[in-house]
Amino acid sequence: MMLLSATYPDSITFVLCAIVVVGGGLGVVLSNNPVRAALNLVMTLFGVAVLFVELSADFLAVVQVIIYAGAIVVLFLFVIMLLGVDKQEKLGSEPLILQRVIAIVVGLAFLGMIIGYGWGNFNSHGSYSVIGVASGGDSGIVELAKATFSYYLLPFEVTSVLLIIAIIGAVVLIARSGPGEDEVKEDISAEIKTDGPKEGHENDVSVSEDKVDEVRSVDFTVGEEQIV
């Protein structure tokens, strides 16, 4: 199991991680339950983290675990549990004809294109160590910090702005309107309902009626019953 002049431990680590990464990725796509998909995503993330250690990027491996596994996927799970959308999904039905076939064909063609192009033209002749040498006893944390806060200072600041924007955007999107506004909205919807047939809203109500029994949240069912 030697992969091109690699030692046995390295090769075995790589193969195991590759299995975990690809298996987790397939699990995300193929699992019919969002929570299972999230767990498979965690598996992939851990595989990638171990590969980072293998590539002597210890710091990034730990950051990957802290941010991805510790925050992002937990956020996913939190939303899944909060909304109660953790029910099984029917993967068999597909409303668009040939959607899957075409998607898979496109994806595989993309993969073939990358690998095929890389196979012929692969020679890494980038210049070595432009930003800084990734080495040293501290797993390159000092070099990484120097690069981040000097060479990449502008991108660093821009990402901080991006985070602020994301936070504000999330708060604006999530923030519940006050109790008064809620009442107004309900009234409007009730009026529209009683006014008579308006096509768009008819559709809406019929869709939501279908799903009322599937929904866990008590708030929504009560609201629907009142409107109907």
Partner: peptide, 25 residues
Amino acid sequence: DPPIGILFVLALSSIAVYGVMLAGW
């Protein structure tokens, strides 16, 4: 005694939430 010891601790404490979360779910 890994060179990233204290980050390792933080990473593990952030993983620890999974046990509680998934048990409840």
